[in-house]
Amino acid sequence: MAHVLEPQAKTLAEAEQDAPYGLIADIDPRVRIVMACVFAVVTVALGSVPGLLAALSIAIGLLLLSRLPIRRTLKRMAMMDGFIIFMLVLMPFSMPGDVMFTVFGFPASWQGLWKAFEIALTANAVILTLMVLVGTMEPVTLGHALHRLRCPEVLVHLMMFTIRYIEVLREEYLRLRSAMKIRGFRPGTNWHTYRSFGYLVGMMMVRAIERSERILGAMKCRGFSGRLMLLQEFSMSRRDHVFAALLGAACIGLLIVDFA
């Protein structure tokens, strides 16, 4: 699904399809989802830099185990850092404490710097684990696993529809965009651009709704009753229990490091 972001690239999972991809892929999807959540909650609860560094090392360890393309995954993680960099840069200036240096008369504090560092560590550890454990699944598997984990059926339906049609609608969007380009449209900061984009969005919505009407008709014709037909059964193996136990122990270890 990631090609939505990077035109040539495939999903992290798809890109490595030739290589059997690591230990992570064999683990039961339900275990991966639950453990990613447990790890996230534990990491957010940590309050010290050594604990957070350990959490980030675990996340990187999982990344290595998964045999994902390391550079690309880290690059994607860094994209998130781009979003929060402003907040982090402001932190030393906005938090009172021992003065580190001053810029234009604004004092920067050590405490603020540490706090910013802690936030960056937490955010990266959690998002990296999430991408490695859950992001490597086929999107459809994710839906089935969530259903097995007792997510509301309608929500899973909604998610499966979204996953299914993102690619279709992206192609439609690209088709509309190339039609605009052929007619000489070049985006700029002007009223014409905004009006054209507005019409583009409006057209996409209208077409999406008309498409959904056709889908509904087709589904009713095949007797859709709102029940989710699952194509795969999940079963917990020894390996899944071991993985859950190990990562659980690592989480407890993190809490111990944090308190020590």
Binding site: V4, L158, Y173, T189, F197, V201, I209, G226
Partner: peptide
């Protein structure tokens, strides 16, 4: 969301996902 509105909501959800990738100068 009753049965008839699930496809509409799903397809619209997907189209908002795609629309959020449009960059406006």
């Amino acid at each position: 969301l009753d049965l008839d509105r699930i496809p509409t909501a799903g397809v619209l959800s997907a189209s908002f996902f795609v629309a959020s990738l449009i960059h406006v100068p």
